[in-house]
Design a protein around this nucleic acid. Structure first.
Lengths: 190, 190
DNA sequence: CAAAAATGACTGACTAGACAAGCACTAAAA
DNA sequence: TTTTAGTGCTTGTCTAGTCAGTCATTTTTG
């Protein structure tokens, strides 16, 4: 390999994509993204085969980052409710301190450009979260409900709470707590 | 006005837009929509000034239709929980029997093309729903929480439940019930 | 240790195609 | 006869992706 691709440049493109998409939406021209990243139009395509490829990789990166952040420092021996609250708080903190990433995630989640394969790969990085949720559900009022529905509901509550916090960041802490209590009322056991 | 615009044609365009957008996404060409509606390319623009205008009107129409459907036959003297359940069931039924409209709504909700004005107008048509929700909230565990957060959570739960039903329509009834019970655990009082 | 050859990342002008909207014209209503 | 809806071809703009050539970096060779 004569001249290695630089990880820096790849990251610069992904970061630029976030900044541009947040203001222009997913239809933002690749040229704009390349320019924002300080890279030539054509270079973008040496790092990402197509625009769709760029979007898929961005989605994967964001989802993984979010999952990692949410699980950071989870106390493995604490009561399940405390673990869940820790997890919830991490997630909220990440979301509120990365509003642009959150917005872009929301757009990508709904986009047709994201392939099922990417969604599955993204799901894998959430495996640990699934286990946790499974334990929570098993002894609560949702024990009979299908896991998929429970997972979607949690996701929905997270997103709703995050969205609301975005509009009133000063009371983030209180809203986060309200959200968690709602979640726990839905599926928790004690 | 010498020759009146036909309401039929307008509706044909909106209906065609739904059909086309559901398969092609919001970037679907206006030409395709016009063709699907059995109308010339240019005619579309006598009914809708721009493509964005078309999307905004479609959003408004769908949101209004959904709101109306959800409130149909609401028993005004029944217990508040029963009213809420009636409302929830209506909403679910509308969603499951109009999957394409639901999908298009989801796309429009997130789209940058929809103006704040349109969103506000759409909110107005939901006023009655707001009152109902207000009564529910007032005596439950969410009485201290801001109304906006409560509304977003309900919306999130509706959407999550709808989405899940879409993937397993055979058990729609059971899932709908599960969803409502979750909602009631969050904010109901008895 | 040159130096030159091989490699492939990088550039940005360019192309081919798509699309929203305009327009000149025709048909229908009043 | 006037006015406006309706038509579908045309136009100007925009954009994803290409490509011929350049240049930084590594590898080979005398």
């Amino acid at each position: 390999m004569a001249r290695p691709k630089s990880e820096d440049k790849r990251n610069a493109i992904l970061a630029a994509a976030i900044r541009v998409i947040v203001t222009q939406g997913l239809s933002a021209p690749t040229a704009t993204i390349a320019h924002e990243a300080g890279v030539a139009n054509g270079s973008l395509f040496t790092y990402f085969k197509t625009k769709a490829d760029l979007l898929n990789q961005l989605y994967l990166e964001l989802k993984t980052e979010m999952g990692t952040a949410a699980l950071a420092g989870l106390p493995p021996d604490a009561a399940i409710r405390d673990q869940m609250f820790h997890f919830w708080s991490n997630w909220m903190r990440w979301a509120t301190s990365n509003p642009e990433k959150r917005r872009v995630m929301a757009q990508l989640t709904v986009s047709e450009e994201i392939t099922p394969e990417t969604r599955i790969a993204a799901g894998k990085s959430m495996a640990r979260i699934g286990e946790l949720l499974e334990q929570v559900r098993a002894y609560g009022p949702m024990s009979e409900a299908p896991m998929g529905l429970v997972a979607q509901m949690m996701d929905a509550l997270v997103t709703a709470t995050e969205n609301y916090i975005l509009g009133d960041p000063d009371n983030a802490e209180a809203h986060s707590r309200t959200g968690f209590e709602a979640l726990w009322r839905i599926m928790g056991s004690a």
